[in-house]
Nucleic acid binder design. Sequence first.
DNA 1: TACGATTTAATCGTGCACGATTTACATACT
DNA 2: AGTATGTAAATCGTGCACGATTAAATCGTA
Lengths: 143, 143
Amino acid sequence: MTNPSIPPSQMLCFALYSTTHAMQAAYKPLLDPLGLTYPQYLALMTLMTQPSLTVSQLGAALHLDSNTLTPLLKRMEAKGWLTRRRDTGDDRRVNLALTDAGRALGTQAAAVPACFLDKTGFDPATAGDLREVLALLRANLRA
Amino acid sequence: MTNPSIPPSQMLCFALYSTTHAMQAAYKPLLDPLGLTYPQYLALMTLMTQPSLTVSQLGAALHLDSNTLTPLLKRMEAKGWLTRRRDTGDDRRVNLALTDAGRALGTQAAAVPACFLDKTGFDPATAGDLREVLALLRANLRA
DNA sequence: TACGATTTAATCGTGCACGATTTACATACT
DNA sequence: AGTATGTAAATCGTGCACGATTAAATCGTA
């Protein structure tokens, strides 16, 4: 039995890949005025809901390692949104904390998800269902 | 009415973002033995199903521009998988064509989607439904 | 307490993505 | 012919992602 080639347009993986690109493009006009990139926005929102985290704890939340996060966090630090301080007591850790400017930005950014939901054209229930299917797929793929 | 911050774990956008990363990680052990990256795999599969394309036509299929594709295609050319030739008649265009080695690789890579579907733990119908929901979301976001 | 194993960040190199610009060419319209 | 308009690819700069390595600090256990 042969195995004919299938175009990306019929692949689930490409649907994920291209929809993620479209999602990031849709976020761009919402985040550009705030000076945030999409991954920076995720880091900011994580720190808004969990105000005290180390680099690796943030990495666990976003599934990113220090090789990605360290430069990203340095850029956010350079913009005055957060501080990176060696832990007193365990010098291996770097504790992250939002500055007042960071929290102010986070408060502004809290309005973004609703704008995005509007762009999806999905009602909240449909969006929630999709989110759960994707979470299941993600868990299966990581297994 | 205030607008409390929501953690990424509850955002649809993060579900997309992190599931796409998990998808690419799941593809890696399937593509590494072939020497392909994930975007290169998409380019290869596109050329397997549409053997004669220009750079911009490939870009239309994958929703990528020449600034991304040119270096990617040069790497694939360096590996001997495809040729890039200026169109005779319209010197602006660059025609892409798989070599024999590229077609042989593409034939091998045609087995990858089935392996991936297995990793998803989804039956084909569920995967197909998800693909369609994502296609709708993508179209809405691009509108 | 000594020392191997583990944890935590940072660093380096490669490969996407994408905005902005550049260069070359083709086409349409005077 | 000559010019404006548009198209196609390449180039440059910035910012993720991620594998591999490094370096420092901590922990566990003999």
